[in-house]
Amino acid sequence: MKTSAGRYFEDFRLGEHIVHATPRTLTDGDIALSTALYGSRFALTSGATFAEALGLRQLPVDPLLTFHVVFGKTVPDISINAVANLGYAGGRFGVPVLPGDTVTATSEVIGLKANRDGRTGTVYVRSQGRNQRDEVVLDYVRWVMVNKAEPHETAEAPVVPELPGAVPAGDLHVPITVPVDYAARLAPLAGSAQLFEDYEVGERIDHVDGMTVEEAEHMLATRLYQNTAKVHFNQLAQADSRFGRRLVYGGHIISMARALSFNGLQNALWVAAINAGTHANPTFAGDTIHAWSEVLERLDLPGRTDVGALRLRTVATKNHPCGDFPLRGEDGRYRPEVVLDLDYTVLIPRG
């Protein structure tokens, strides 16, 4: 056969190394299209002169765009027959991707666990993106629920990997150097005077704004990332599914929440790590996304006095402004309004 229906749970082997098609060269056009999709206003990934002032030789690709491209490479081999992408852990961004760089991706199967329903199983993979110089641009773990080709009980003992926790401060890649006059010269351009010292652990920031997901936009986004998952593309295949309609790619919500977080975190210039994440409930076209963030940790970076890191928890909700309401119901499950619970680390200049 010259075509493939994709892998089902039975097709994965523990320790298997998978090389994903297709190399993807990122350009200024990708940056512009990503900006059009999400409206991100963070200065480091918006202005070339701002990026150069922080020691980069040109405007970098937003780390989340890098994430989406690497993720998209993995879909045909990992999650084309997925029921749901369940979570992320230990995601670390490496060297920045610059326009003109070519990104490739590989994955290793690190865990397999059949589910009790006999119809699905959970596949754990560590995926890695590299540039044309073989430098790591992203390394992360994700796990995904995948359909079986034929419903049956699985005799093999489950292998569930120990998932990495938050990326330690010493393992963060810091691609920027903050000039001593940042507060006076560059902070106004970034949009706020609030720097590392102005955020307190436990502080919660309501990002106030909302953004409605449009059908054309989330479809365009998944095509931009070459993400071929049926649940996003194929309405005919979804007509008889549990939801009866196409799901919005979870990464689309991550980028929307990050863009919304500008209002309150203007100087959180660079995403350095994705520590953990859960897509709590599905999002559909027409839903309006809101977000709030909590400061989990303030991290000093070894040998650096110009920049620090904030570990954040950003929660995105649909059709419900982010006031004070419980995230979980009495049954312990996320309330239906909650669509994303993301733990990640950003770099922010010090005062």
Results as ranks from 00 to 15, higher is better:
2 K>E: 12
6 G>P: 00
13 R>Y: 02
20 H>L: 08
32 A>L: 08
41 R>T: 09
44 L>Y: 03
52 E>A: 12
63 P>Q: 11
65 L>V: 10
68 H>A: 15
68 H>F: 00
73 K>V: 00
75 V>W: 03
76 P>L: 11
76 P>F: 05
78 I>N: 14
82 A>W: 00
86 L>Y: 05
86 L>R: 08
87 G>C: 11
94 G>H: 01
99 P>D: 04
100 G>S: 06
103 V>D: 02
112 L>T: 06
116 R>D: 07
121 G>S: 09
125 V>A: 12
143 W>E: 01
154 T>L: 04
155 A>Y: 00
158 P>R: 08
173 H>Q: 10
178 V>P: 04
185 R>N: 08
194 Q>R: 15
200 E>I: 09
201 V>M: 13
201 V>W: 09
202 G>V: 10
203 E>N: 07
208 V>R: 15
209 D>S: 12
219 M>S: 11
223 R>H: 12
225 Y>T: 14
236 L>Q: 13
236 L>V: 12
238 Q>V: 09
240 D>W: 03
250 G>Q: 04
251 G>T: 03
253 I>K: 02
261 S>N: 10
262 F>W: 15
262 F>T: 07
263 N>E: 09
267 N>S: 11
270 W>T: 07
276 A>T: 08
280 A>M: 06
280 A>H: 03
281 N>K: 09
286 G>E: 07
289 I>N: 04
296 L>Y: 09
298 R>V: 02
299 L>H: 11
305 T>F: 01
305 T>Y: 00
306 D>G: 10
306 D>K: 08
307 V>G: 05
308 G>I: 10
310 L>R: 07
310 L>M: 12
314 T>P: 02
314 T>G: 05
318 K>A: 03
320 H>M: 14
321 P>M: 06
325 F>N: 07
338 V>P: 06
338 V>T: 08
